[in-house]
């Protein structure tokens, strides 16, 4: 177990550097003058440009720039946005909101997806199975922004149940509909995954053994079948939190949620390299850590992995 964790951790390091370097390189090579918008309609004064070039070490070779930048980040110096705010400030308000949204989405996804998957996996080919199959296919096929606008239109505009855009510091209940939107596609995927996992394990020898032990149907399903079938599902859900951190851009835009997605999007569109890099680095880090934790969780849940 310890060696397994260590190996996964070591594998993470080159990936972390690779991904952040890729981002760094892409962002700093955004077309146009990196500081064009900063000084308003006028061109920036040479002294300012020089100062910024110095600040971001732009005269060094790219790889040196990158490592100097990373070193700053390690010391929690995330720099400032072009409008002068501390990036760490911006992150500390935006990040919790996106995390909240991601959590709500994963919960919705898990509860609905697993329930549908278990029910259909146990009784395949029935009416319920076909109904769930068709509706999951529809959900998978509807792009997030279509679902978003539809739900916003129906709940917010037409029925007036929710406010079409959420408040600046949204509560969990405000995030239910946005969470549902964010979760919609993956929820369908979870239910398909659970269904096939349940259906496959339902014919496993150890389930037959459990029946032969004279256990009740409820016990066979809830202990023997579910434990094995849900291991891959739970770990998938864990990884989803990471995915949602960077994948909530569209949903946040539709419901006007002041999360990380909006900040990054605006920064990319405004070509604010100095803001994009630290935030994306943090998102990637969260994403990779979520995946690592999930891998370790897998090893805890499935004793076979520990002895590889």
């Amino acid at each position: 177990m310890g060696r397994y964790a260590l190996r996964r951790l070591l594998q993470l390091i080159p990936v972390l550097f690779g991904t952040t370097f890729l981002i760094y390189w892409l962002v700093w090579s955004l077309p146009g003058n990196a500081f064009a918008g900063k000084c308003g309609p006028r061109l920036c004064e040479q002294s300012y440009i020089d100062e910024m070039r110095d600040r971001y070490n732009l005269d060094d070779p790219l790889i040196v720039q990158y490592f100097k930048y990373m070193w700053d980040m390690v010391r929690f110096d995330f720099g400032t946005t072009y409008s002068g705010e501390q990036v760490s400030e911006v992150l500390s308000t935006a990040l919790p909101i996106t995390m909240k949204l991601a959590l709500v989405a994963v919960l919705i996804e898990g509860v609905i997806g697993i329930t549908a998957g278990v029910l259909t996996g146990l009784k395949r080919g029935g009416f319920l199975d076909n109904m769930v199959l068709v509706s999951t296919l529809f959900l998978i096929s509807l792009p997030v922004f279509v679902v978003g606008f539809l739900l916003q239109y129906l709940f917010g505009v037409k029925w007036g149940i929710i406010d079409p855009s959420v408040s600046e510091d949204p509560s969990f209940s405000e995030l239910i509909i946005p969470g549902l939107v964010l979760a919609s596609g993956q929820m369908a995927y979870i239910s398909r995954l659970t269904r096939s996992s349940i259906a496959e394990n339902n014919r496993a020898d150890y389930v037959r053994t459990a029946v032969a032990k004279g256990l009740t149907r409820g016990r066979v399903v809830s202990v023997h079948l579910l434990r094995n079938s849900l291991i891959p599902i739970i770990t998938f859900l864990g990884a989803e939190i990471g995915t949602f951190m960077g994948g909530a851009i569209v949903t946040e835009g539709i419901f006007n949620i002041q999360g990380v997605g909006g900040v990054v999007f605006d920064a990319v569109r405004g070509q604010e390299a100095g803001t994009v890099v630290p935030i994306v680095t943090v998102i990637v880090l969260i994403y990779l850590l979520a995946n690592l934790i999930v891998d370790l969780l897998y090893a805890v849940l499935d004793p076979r992995i520990r002895y590889e």
Partner: peptide, 20 residues
């Protein structure tokens, strides 16, 4: 089952639940 008539299966590796 098990109390009156019990059964031993062929392949114990797959017949025993791997996670318990």
């Amino acid at each position: 089952r098990a109390a009156g008539i019990a059964m031993v299966f062929q392949d114990a590796l797959s017949a025993l639940n791997p996670v318990f």
